[in-house]
Design a protein around this nucleic acid. Structure first.
Lengths: 128, 128
DNA sequence: ATGAACCCTGGAGCGCACTCCAGGTCAAAT
DNA sequence: ATTTGACCTGGAGTGCGCTCCAGGGTTCAT
């Protein structure tokens, strides 16, 4: 996930995939779904070339997806990037998402506690 | 989710749904998928009646599902309940699952940190 | 200059976890 | 007596997030 190694002309889709941890198919799928900041530049023959900025953006997509934001919501977020001065709205989306993630973490933690109790229960049973 | 209010004859599927936080359809689906401990008793006319034990088990299912265990894996876990002396294996499954959940929590937490940095970044921008 | 490896598009297919539906039974209230 | 509503079954449908494929062009090392 080191982003610093992107040459001036940009990297191929497979390199971007490797850098971001996503698959080549997923990158094209995300683009189709409108999650790219700017649709990536193309080489003379029409192949995608990802700049350093593009690759950093993929990192943002991973961050949002892996914390459970649906594609649909990410699209709304991306759309705001095309609107001048939409920073407050973007901020609001991120803050709402953070709350959501915190609630989620909390619930999972609660269930995890229950799992731990169950584990301890089994351990007592097994050790006797 | 209070489990104590289950009368001797058991409760209907809609009551069990309410007690567990699952939907009626999901309860039948889980049963079809082999996630019930014992398939529930039926009334004279063939309706399901959930005992207190059944309802507690639904709580276990919720705990496993909401921490991300796939149906398929839960089925393996349930199957062990039908095997005498399988406690060590059940324990192993729970411990492996706990590890999995911890890793997941860790990753989400890492991404959440990134979200927080992004939020702070936006806040600085907006406040100037 | 030729073959392997990579890239393109549009669209189909997949696995998961439900969710909904049709068509029917049954118990209880009006 | 009939209407209401909760329940039943088997199976179809849904939404999501990819993942794969066919059919075709391109790049590059040997």
């Amino acid at each position: 996930m080191t982003v610093t190694e992107v040459p001036a002309g940009g990297v191929t889709i497979s390199a971007a995939a490797e850098l971001s941890g996503l698959s080549v198919d997923t990158l094209r799928y995300y683009e189709k779904e409108g999650l790219s900041l700017h649709r990536p530049e193309r080489s003379a023959s029409g192949q995608r070339r990802y700049t350093e900025e593009d690759v950093r953006w993929l990192g943002t997509l991973v961050m949002l997806r892996r914390t459970g934001m649906p594609i649909r919501d990410i699209r709304r977020f991306v759309d705001l990037y095309r609107i001048e001065g939409s920073e407050p709205q973007r901020l609001a989306i991120l803050e709402a998402h953070r709350e959501h993630v915190l609630e989620e973490l909390n619930e999972v933690q609660t269930h995890l506690d229950a799992i731990n109790r169950k584990i301890n229960h089994y351990k007592e049973m097994v050790n006797e």
